[in-house]
Amino acid sequence: MSEEAAQAEREYRIEELAEAAGVPVRTLRYYQERRLLPPPRRRGRVAVYSQGHLERLRLISELLERGYRLDGIEELLAAWEQGRDVGELLGFEWAVTAPWSQQAETEMTMDELAGLFGDQLTPEVLDEAAELGYIEIRGDRIVHRVPRLMEATAALVAEGIPLAEILALSWELEAAFDRIAYTFVRLARRHLVDRMGDPPTPAELARLAESVERLRPVTRTVADEHFARAMDRRIRKEFTHLTPRLTAPDRSPAERRAAGRER
């Protein structure tokens, strides 16, 4: 008998299965209660598990590591039991949900961060940045999850814009871009997702994944161009208000005070 065949026929008691899968026995029992794991065969009063149970447990662990909740795992396993290819489904999921920003996290000490922001780096500011999800405080080190935003923030502070006001603006930007993202996703769902079969075929999933990949740069271009147009409009409007002040003749302090009283 080959090694693969012997492995396929291997049987486990519950403690052996838990050890092989790297999960506690109580977790294994919980999965059984939720029907994530098929019932074992019975040999007298002893529950006997197979290699299939071990593979199922490893798949559950992998899905949990990828951020799935147990409810979602139940749906995937149900699809698997109906003959769907879970690898195919996971490949589609990764293509659709892969991060849009591929920045690597960076770490700095608190002293290094203070060197950028000086006395503006208060505990309240750190807490707010952490709440926004921009940083994570790990002991005496700060992990920057979005390094480019940190660099942009440092540049704005260097120009004289208070750090606290930048963070206040960040909340507004998060909300505004969340609305924009919702609009794009709703559009894609209506015209791409809702036209697929129920359940979608592998070919439909593959086409959707390819469409999403093609639309990623297009979507960013649309957002960038609309933001650029909005900035152009706003700057022109503000500059129009500023022009009279720039072109007004110099006046003496007394004249400026008199003009102020007239207003």
Rank of each mutant, 00 (worst) to 15 (best):
T106Y: 02
W80K: 01
S61Y: 06
A176D: 06
Y182L: 15
D250W: 14
R251M: 11
R141P: 00
Y30F: 15
D119T: 09
R13Y: 12
F184S: 08
E65G: 08
A5D: 09
R41I: 10
A254W: 04
T183M: 13
S252L: 14
L156K: 11
I135C: 07
A104R: 13
Q103K: 06
V86P: 03
A176Y: 09
A95V: 03
R13T: 12
F117L: 09
A8F: 06
E172C: 02
E105K: 14
S50T: 14
P24M: 08
A6C: 02
A95L: 07
D194R: 09
E11H: 04
I73D: 01
R257I: 08
S211N: 03
R10P: 04
V46Q: 14
E174G: 01
E174N: 05
Q7V: 09
R234M: 11
P38Y: 01
E9T: 07
R10K: 14
W94A: 10
V218L: 10
A5Y: 05
D119Q: 08
E93P: 00
P162M: 06
E55Y: 03
D232N: 08
Y31I: 12
V193M: 04
I166C: 06
M231R: 10
R207H: 12
M196G: 05
S211T: 06
A181E: 09
R42A: 13
Y68F: 15
D194M: 03
G67H: 06
R56M: 11
P38N: 03
E62F: 05
Q103D: 11
L126G: 07
A203C: 01
E225D: 13
Y134S: 08
L192M: 12
G260W: 15
Q120C: 03
S252K: 11
A230T: 05
L156G: 10
E159Q: 12
Y49T: 04
M1C: 04
S61R: 15
M150I: 07
E165R: 12
D224Q: 13
